[in-house]
Protein backbone atom coordinates (compact mmCIF):
# COMPACT_ATOMS: atom_id res chain seq x y z
CA UNK A 1 0.00 0.00 0.00
CA UNK A 2 1.23 3.49 -0.81
CA UNK A 3 2.83 5.44 2.03
CA UNK A 4 1.15 8.84 2.10
CA UNK A 5 2.43 11.72 4.19
CA UNK A 6 0.74 14.99 5.11
CA UNK A 7 2.09 18.15 3.51
CA UNK A 8 1.88 21.71 4.86
CA UNK A 9 1.90 24.93 2.78
CA UNK A 10 5.59 25.57 3.49
CA UNK A 11 6.51 22.20 2.02
CA UNK A 12 4.32 22.86 -1.02
CA UNK A 13 6.29 26.03 -1.71
CA UNK A 14 9.55 24.21 -1.11
CA UNK A 15 8.69 21.44 -3.56
CA UNK A 16 7.41 23.98 -6.09
CA UNK A 17 10.64 25.91 -5.83
CA UNK A 18 12.67 22.76 -6.29
CA UNK A 19 10.58 21.80 -9.31
CA UNK A 20 11.28 25.13 -11.00
CA UNK A 21 15.00 24.92 -10.24
CA UNK A 22 15.35 21.32 -11.44
CA UNK A 23 13.56 22.22 -14.66
CA UNK A 24 15.78 25.22 -15.23
CA UNK A 25 18.90 23.07 -14.83
CA UNK A 26 17.47 20.41 -17.16
CA UNK A 27 16.71 22.93 -19.88
CA UNK A 28 20.08 24.62 -19.50
CA UNK A 29 21.90 21.31 -19.92
CA UNK A 30 19.90 20.56 -23.04
CA UNK A 31 21.51 23.59 -24.64
CA UNK A 32 24.93 22.03 -24.12
CA UNK A 33 24.22 18.78 -25.91
CA UNK A 34 26.76 18.74 -28.72
CA UNK A 35 25.29 16.09 -30.95
CA UNK A 36 21.69 15.03 -31.34
CA UNK A 37 22.67 11.47 -32.15
CA UNK A 38 24.29 9.28 -29.53
CA UNK A 39 24.32 9.55 -25.81
CA UNK A 40 26.02 12.09 -23.60
CA UNK A 41 26.57 13.16 -20.03
CA UNK A 42 24.76 16.44 -20.73
CA UNK A 43 21.69 14.52 -21.88
CA UNK A 44 21.79 12.28 -18.82
CA UNK A 45 22.04 15.23 -16.44
CA UNK A 46 19.25 17.02 -18.30
CA UNK A 47 17.09 13.92 -18.12
CA UNK A 48 17.79 13.30 -14.42
CA UNK A 49 16.91 16.88 -13.55
CA UNK A 50 13.77 16.72 -15.68
CA UNK A 51 12.64 13.68 -13.72
CA UNK A 52 13.38 15.41 -10.42
CA UNK A 53 11.42 18.44 -11.62
CA UNK A 54 8.41 16.32 -12.46
CA UNK A 55 8.45 14.50 -9.15
CA UNK A 56 8.76 17.74 -7.19
CA UNK A 57 5.96 19.38 -9.20
CA UNK A 58 3.73 16.37 -8.59
CA UNK A 59 4.45 16.57 -4.86
CA UNK A 60 3.60 20.29 -4.86
CA UNK A 61 0.34 19.74 -6.76
CA UNK A 62 -0.78 16.86 -4.54
CA UNK A 63 0.31 18.79 -1.48
CA UNK A 64 -1.75 21.82 -2.48
CA UNK A 65 -4.82 19.95 -3.71
CA UNK A 66 -4.92 17.06 -1.25
CA UNK A 67 -2.73 18.17 1.63
CA UNK A 68 -0.51 15.13 1.17
CA UNK A 69 1.97 13.39 -1.11
CA UNK A 70 3.30 9.91 -1.66
CA UNK A 71 6.38 9.02 0.29
CA UNK A 72 9.75 9.23 -1.44
CA UNK A 73 10.41 6.20 -3.56
CA UNK A 74 6.73 5.25 -3.78
CA UNK A 75 6.30 5.86 -7.50
CA UNK A 76 3.06 4.01 -7.95
CA UNK A 77 1.55 5.86 -5.01
CA UNK A 78 2.66 9.18 -6.44
CA UNK A 79 1.04 8.46 -9.80
CA UNK A 80 -2.20 7.26 -8.16
CA UNK A 81 -2.40 10.29 -5.94
CA UNK A 82 -1.78 12.68 -8.81
CA UNK A 83 -4.44 10.90 -10.83
CA UNK A 84 -7.01 11.88 -8.20
CA UNK A 85 -6.51 15.65 -8.44
CA UNK A 86 -8.50 18.01 -10.60
CA UNK A 87 -8.19 19.61 -13.04
CA UNK A 88 -6.39 17.25 -15.35
CA UNK A 89 -5.12 14.71 -12.81
CA UNK A 90 -5.21 11.82 -15.29
CA UNK A 91 -3.05 13.58 -17.86
CA UNK A 92 -0.65 14.78 -15.19
CA UNK A 93 -0.39 11.25 -13.81
CA UNK A 94 0.42 9.96 -17.28
CA UNK A 95 3.24 12.50 -17.61
CA UNK A 96 4.62 11.57 -14.21
CA UNK A 97 4.42 7.91 -15.09
CA UNK A 98 6.48 8.51 -18.24
CA UNK A 99 9.13 10.32 -16.21
CA UNK A 100 9.28 7.65 -13.53
CA UNK A 101 9.58 4.80 -16.00
CA UNK A 102 12.99 6.16 -17.05
CA UNK A 103 14.16 7.09 -13.56
CA UNK A 104 15.81 3.85 -12.49
CA UNK A 105 17.44 3.26 -15.83
CA UNK A 106 19.03 6.70 -15.82
CA UNK A 107 20.24 6.47 -12.26
CA UNK A 108 21.97 3.14 -12.64
CA UNK A 109 22.47 2.78 -16.36
CA UNK A 110 24.57 4.63 -18.88
CA UNK A 111 24.09 7.89 -20.67
CA UNK A 112 20.86 8.68 -22.46
CA UNK A 113 20.25 10.21 -25.85
CA UNK A 114 19.36 13.82 -26.61
CA UNK A 115 15.95 12.73 -27.86
CA UNK A 116 15.13 11.01 -24.56
CA UNK A 117 16.36 13.99 -22.55
CA UNK A 118 14.28 16.45 -24.59
CA UNK A 119 11.19 14.29 -24.31
CA UNK A 120 11.57 14.05 -20.54
CA UNK A 121 12.15 17.79 -20.25
CA UNK A 122 8.92 18.44 -22.18
CA UNK A 123 6.93 16.21 -19.83
CA UNK A 124 8.54 17.87 -16.83
CA UNK A 125 7.74 21.35 -18.15
CA UNK A 126 4.06 20.43 -18.48
CA UNK A 127 4.02 19.25 -14.85
CA UNK A 128 5.81 22.35 -13.61
CA UNK A 129 3.49 24.64 -15.59
CA UNK A 130 0.49 22.78 -14.20
CA UNK A 131 1.39 24.06 -10.73
CA UNK A 132 -0.02 27.44 -11.84
CA UNK A 133 -3.45 25.89 -12.30
CA UNK A 134 -3.48 25.03 -8.62
CA UNK A 135 -2.41 28.50 -7.54
CA UNK A 136 1.01 27.24 -6.53
CA UNK A 137 3.79 29.79 -6.45
CA UNK A 138 7.36 28.71 -5.90
Amino acid sequence: MARIVDVNPALVRQRAGAASEFLQVAEERLEFIRAESGESAEAQVAASNAIAAGISAADAICGKALGRRANDGDHRGAVELLDSVKPGGSKLALRLSKLLSDKSQLQYGGYCSAAVARSLAREARKLVEAMNEFGIRS
Binding site: D6, P9, K64, A65, L66, G67, S84, V85, K86, P87, G89, F134
Partner: peptide, 20 residues
Amino acid sequence: RVLAHSTEPLTGASVARIAG
Protein backbone atom coordinates in the same frame (compact mmCIF):
# COMPACT_ATOMS: atom_id res chain seq x y z
CA ARG B 1 -12.04 25.19 -3.46
CA VAL B 2 -10.55 22.14 -1.74
CA LEU B 3 -13.18 19.71 -3.00
CA ALA B 4 -12.95 21.05 -6.55
CA HIS B 5 -9.34 19.86 -6.64
CA SER B 6 -9.88 16.36 -5.30
CA THR B 7 -11.76 13.29 -6.41
CA GLU B 8 -10.91 11.48 -3.18
CA PRO B 9 -13.25 11.58 -0.20
CA LEU B 10 -11.91 13.92 2.48
CA THR B 11 -12.84 14.25 6.14
CA GLY B 12 -13.90 17.62 7.52
CA ALA B 13 -10.60 17.90 9.37
CA SER B 14 -8.69 17.24 6.15
CA VAL B 15 -10.67 19.88 4.28
CA ALA B 16 -9.94 22.39 7.04
CA ARG B 17 -6.24 21.50 7.01
CA ILE B 18 -5.89 21.71 3.24
CA ALA B 19 -7.90 24.94 3.14
CA GLY B 20 -5.66 26.36 5.85
